[in-house]
Write a protein that binds this DNA or RNA. Structure first.
Lengths: 259, 259
DNA sequence: ATAGCAGCGTGACGGCCATCACAGCCAGGA
DNA sequence: TCCTGGCTGTGATGGCCGTCACGCTGCTAT
């Protein structure tokens, strides 16, 4: 059961910061940069026949969202999907008493609201913008019609859903299969370092999440995360400089997970 | 990382019990009863054009699996999907140290292995038969070809995936958003009673899971589950007769969750 | 019968971690 | 400039629950 409804228009919410310009909605330049992406074949709508891409463009509307804006709220009936062009969006669910569980942080190219839009069930998560974002919106009716007309796109959608499911399972594993909070944090950091892949035994990554948010991702309290970071630093496992995190001893973290 | 691989043929594993007869594989009678299901419109392949159903039947092979058999193991590369006709299958993931997390118990009509088969990534879960099952198998290549040829089926698949995702999120909520084990168990029981829906303030349902399995579903220890059941009985919240569970005070459970 | 096993019930103990409380710290705004 | 608010660091405390250990039941197989 959703923890209470807030109505959020996608034109409202959050404040613009100095120097930020809200792009005109319904502009085509964003659509272009987001729908045609030859560099990444696994993106949702790439390598579709030109006619399909054209069809997509005609039902897509672009908009910009400032930090703090909310794309949709868990429990709302699905209005459609958002294709994220720039920025980052936090996907979370929360309980009646205010506890929050963050499922993932969406990055460039992901399609938000897909499961709810396809099934017709309410959005199961809340999508909050944490870094100024541009996104293409497609209404549910348009989107479903498009999928019915373009079977190959439906298959792509199925694949994307499968991957989303996959990452949800991964998240479940870190939360559900750990004995200790230390193990959860280690798992979390290793997952991060896997995506920001590299070589040797040292990984650099920029961590723009607060301790509170990390806590909500691994199902722990904010203080515990703070203490664990201190602990990991003391054990030479990692190092923090501003928002840059350096994993010094990846094997050490892995040991924590397997212990 | 999977917890080690066991190779499991779908013809092996488990023992037949007295009076059990293993059906001939590749029989058509099972397919019939499972693919054509006018009573439930939301099943995966119902209400498809006859040509599509025919195509499905031609690539489907049926088989029976005894209790204890394993359909697939987490980490295996996907061979295809299993459409469950009868019986029940446990979907779980486990960690290197032997801890197990059960995600769901699949019932009649569900399609197992769908996300992995569609995406091509390894099975993310292990599927164990806990009640003698009959299932139709479709190999990955056949299945993908079928989806490419039948766009409307691909859309159905997307919907099913969306629902699977939905229930995964629900599971995450019960595990991740609870303060106490009591809350988790209450959430679990309420979810159960929601599916076995009814009227007034009393729900009857048959619970064929062991305390151990329930523990693995809610992320707790077996002893804690035992103690909590005793506790709930003492508080007049529920009542157990053999494998029948009666929820006496649904509101009381909901209070536990919202506390 | 009887052994063996799977599942349940229960006590004792101890550690982890959520919670509360408060203190610095930094950035941004009045 | 100071103040305010969000973020981080840290101590004290207490309770929940995981773990170990053991006994009990009932069922099956030999």
């Amino acid at each position: 059961m959703p923890s209470g409804f807030r109505f959020v228009s996608r034109r409202e919410g959050g404040k613009l910061r100095d120097g930020e310009v809200r792009r005109a909605p319904y502009g085509l330049e964003i659509i272009e940069s987001c729908l045609s992406c030859p560099q990444r074949e696994d993106r949702l709508f790439c390598n579709l026949p030109p006619s399909a891409v054209q069809g997509l463009a005609s039902i897509t509307s672009a908009a910009a969202y400032p930090k703090g804006a909310t794309l949709f709220v868990e429990g709302q009936s699905p209005r459609g999907v958002f294709i994220l062009c720039t920025g980052r969006v936090k996907l979370s669910t929360s309980s009646a008493d205010g506890r929050t569980l963050i499922l993932r942080i969406s990055e460039l190219g992901e399609v938000l609201g897909l499961p709810a839009t396809v099934t017709g069930k309410p959005y199961e998560l809340t999508a909050d913008v944490i870094e100024p974002a541009q996104a293409n919106f497609i209404s549910r009716e348009d989107f479903l019609r498009f999928l019915r007309e373009h079977g190959e796109a439906a298959l792509r959608v199925a694949q994307q859903l499968g991957e989303t499911y996959h990452s949800a399972i991964a998240e479940m594993r870190t939360i559900g299969l750990s004995h200790s909070a230390a193990e959860k944090l280690a798992r979390f950091l290793l997952d991060l370092s896997a995506s920001h892949d590299e070589g040797k035994g040292e990984v650099r990554l920029t961590l723009t999440l607060t301790h509170e948010e990390i806590a909500q991702m691994i199902g722990a309290s904010r203080e515990t995360v703070t203490r664990l970071f201190a602990d990991f630093k003391k054990k030479q496992l990692l190092q923090v400089k501003g928002s840059t995190l350096i994993i010094r001893n990846k094997a050490g973290l892995q040991q924590l997970v397997e212990a």
